[in-house]
Each structure stands twice: as structure tokens, then as C-alpha cells.
């Protein structure tokens, strides 16, 4: 079943056309990555889906419900969560307070159960629960940002460049957590510049260039695509011919 459908989405900032006629879909329990270089429009897409920016045209359909105009706080109630680019944890609040704020729309009954689930996946957050989030390392902040999104019990998790600014080993760590979450039935849609990492873990991928989707397919196929190898994986044609 198609959980999320984006239909002919356009986003403008004044005269800048950031997204031009974007259509895509995410099926339930899928892990989908959209890759694109800096300025391609990845953040604009997630922000438009979440309601942080208003699309100029087009529709966002979630579980057959048209949620296009909904502000972010209503998207959360519809069970969509977004991990923002750059993590944006509340630096002066403790780790636990960050998670509590993430639970703003949820009822208190499930909080303890949910928190335990999150601490089981991210034990480091449990150890640091009384520290200000600003004191965490980049990787830990990314885990916290994910935890803050998860506590609202989303059906669909959107992520904006989870690997940004992280060391390769930490990136691996973050993506492996995402696979664990996928196992629990979560649907994941993330956007990345780091195509190698994203496509290694995702089931399916889209490629965004200058606000347009230029390619889509299974992650394995995309990883084999010459154009992608050249543009996103830093491998030259030459290298390929030499083999």
C-alpha cells in the first residue's frame, strides 16, 4: 500500500524555483532514500511534506488523506515525524527534556513504555539523559534527534541528511539504528548527499537534480548506474573502463 504520495509538487522561494513538478511515493514499511547534491531541493521537499514551507502547487497524500496544507504540528498528529537537517536538538535542555518535548502531542500513558523502547535502541541517551543536549557529540545529537521524533510514535519517519558532519563509523552506526527501526515496522524516507551510505541501506531511491527527479529505482540498480557513480559516488568513468 502506498503510504505517502507526493503529486506534482512545486515549491518557490520568491523567484527561485526549488522544486519543479515532483511526484513520488513511499510504500508502507519501505526504506526510501532520495539523493541529490547541495541545493538540489532535498530540504525543500521534506519541509514541504511536513508543512514548514507551503508548496505553490501539488498535493501531499498520507494514507489516502490529503494533508497538503497542514502545519507541522498537525502532521505530527497524523503520525509523520521529521528529523531536521543539522539535528537541531534543544541545546540548553537535557536529553530527557528533548525527548519529553518530542512527546508533546502524545498522551502520557505510553510515554514510559515508549521511552524504554527508545532507550533500548539508543542506550547512550539513557546514560546521558540528564546532560544538556548541547554537550553531546554530533552522532549522539543525531540519535537524540531521531529519539525526539520517535517518541511521538510516527508511522512515517522523514530524515534530512542524517550523515551530515558525521564520521564514517558514526554514519554506519546511525544507519544501522535505522535498520533496527525498519524492523519494528517503521516507514523511513530520508534525503542525503551521501549517496553511498543512503543507497547501501535503503530499499529504493530517487535522484533529485535542480528540483527535478531525474532517476529512480531499486538501490542496487542505482548503485550500479554509471551516471550515479560518476556524479554521486565519486567514481570516474575511467576507473570503470580500466577494470
Amino acid at each position: 500500500m502506498k503510504m505517502l504520495k507526493v503529486k506534482s509538487l512545486f515549491v518557490n522561494y520568491g523567484a527561485v524555483e526549488a522544486l519543479k513538478n515532483i511526484s513520488l511515493h513511499i510504500k508502507e514499511k519501505e526504506f526510501v532514500a532520495l539523493i541529490g547534491s547541495n541545493g538540489a531541493g532535498k530540504t525543500s521537499l521534506l519541509n514541504a511534506i511536513m508543512g514548514i514551507v507551503k508548496p505553490k502547487d501539488g498535493e501531499v497524500i498520507f494514507n489516502d488523506k490529503n494533508i497538503t496544507g497542514f502545519p507541522p504540528e498537525r502532521k505530527v498528529k497524523e503520525k509523520i515525524a521529521l528529523v531536521l537537517e543539522g539535528r537541531r536538538v534543544f541545546a540548553n535542555m537535557t536529553v530527557l527534556e528533548n525527548i519529553e518535548v518530542g512527546a508533546f502531542t502524545s498522551d502520557n500513558k505510553n510515554f514510559i513504555k515508549r521511552l524504554k523502547f527508545i532507550y533500548d535502541i539508543f542506550p547512550v541517551l539513557k546514560e546521558r539523559s540528564w546532560q544538556p543536549a548541547g554537550m553531546l557529540s554530533g552522532g549522539e545529537q543525531q540519535m537524540l534527534a531521531i529519539a525526539r521524533a520517535l517518541i511521538s510514535e510516527p508511522k512515517l519517519l522523514l530524515m534530512d541528511e542524517p550523515s551530515m558532519g558525521l564520521a564514517p563509523l558514526v554514519i554506519k552506526d546511525v544507519y544501522e539504528k535505522l535498520l533496527i527501526l525498519k524492523e519494528t515496522g517503521l516507514t523511513i524516507f530520508l534525503v542525503e548527499q551521501n549517496a553511498a551510505a543512503a543507497l547501501k541501506y535503503a530499499d529504493r531511491g530517487y535522484v533529485l537534480e535542480n528540483g527535478k527527479i531525474v532517476l529512480q529505482g531499486k538501490s542496487k540498480e542505482l548503485l550500479e548506474d554509471n551516471e550515479i557513480k560518476r556524479a554521486y559516488l565519486g567514481k570516474e568513468y575511467k576507473e570503470k573502463w580500466e577494470r
Binding site: P72, E73, L84, V89, F90, A91, F104, T105, S152
Partner: peptide
């Protein structure tokens, strides 16, 4: 109160936490 503090720190992050800024 925590929602208020979250808004002080980062309005967009607060809004994606479900807070009506």
C-alpha cells in the same frame, strides 16, 4: 513550560515536535 523553552531555542524544531508555535 518545556514547550515554551523549546520555542525559545528553536521554533522550527519545536513545531516539528507538535507544538503550535
Amino acid at each position: 513550560g518545556k514547550a515554551f523553552r523549546a520555542c525559545y531555542e528553536d521554533k522550527i524544531a519545536a513545531s516539528v515536535c507538535g507544538i503550535n508555535v
